[in-house]
Amino acid sequence: MDISGSLAAELKTLTDALGRPSTDLTDSVRKLADGLRFAVPSWLGLTLTLVLNGLPLALTVLDDGMTPRRIATSAAMPLTPVHGAEHGSSIVFYAGTSGAFVDFAADAAYALGLELDDVALDQHLTPASRTSGVTGLADIAGLNQAIGILVDHGHTPDEAQAELRRLARHARTSLSATAQLVIHSASQHSRPGAL
């Protein structure tokens, strides 16, 4: 599978963050795509969503730009039991032939220790993104930078997260928007000499 453009750049950024020479996320995505094409010949793509600190990161891999129009079936399953990922983490597979995931979904349910009802067939026929790429990275980065700011102000990381949630609830806004407010505020109230 050809992995290029923004997806390649985003996967390289994440691979660099891992700091393990033996792990290349681009290679892992390519192997997964090839494996799925073997298992389900009409496979067209997938969206892997991980929820971290309440914010989703979605990796979408699509065969090509025409994929969204060609999707005829999907299989979605939660990742929570396997990875300790937060509620809402999931993987959705897309294919172009109706019924293509019936056997695969049954195997997947058994393999992941899920009930068959946990595997949703044909309920996600529109991918999270129309093109391959990673969404949500900027929001997660902003949230962590805001946590860092609050940690520097004397909060532990857990307290910092709780404080951001409290502020978001109080202002009736999103966690991401609250994080951006904290970042903006820090840029106006620097503490020169502290470093």
Binding site: L14, T15, A17, L18, G19, L25, L48, L50, L52, N53, L57, L59, H83, A85, I140, A141, N144, Q145, A146, I147, G148, I149, L150, V151, D152, H153, P157, I183, A186, S187, Q188, H189, S190, R191, P192, A194, L195
Partner: peptide
Amino acid sequence: LQSALTHRAAIDQALGILMSRSG
């Protein structure tokens, strides 16, 4: 992916500390 995000979280939180100190 989860491991990469965890590693990145530490880097971003450190960036937040530097942003807090220098604006």
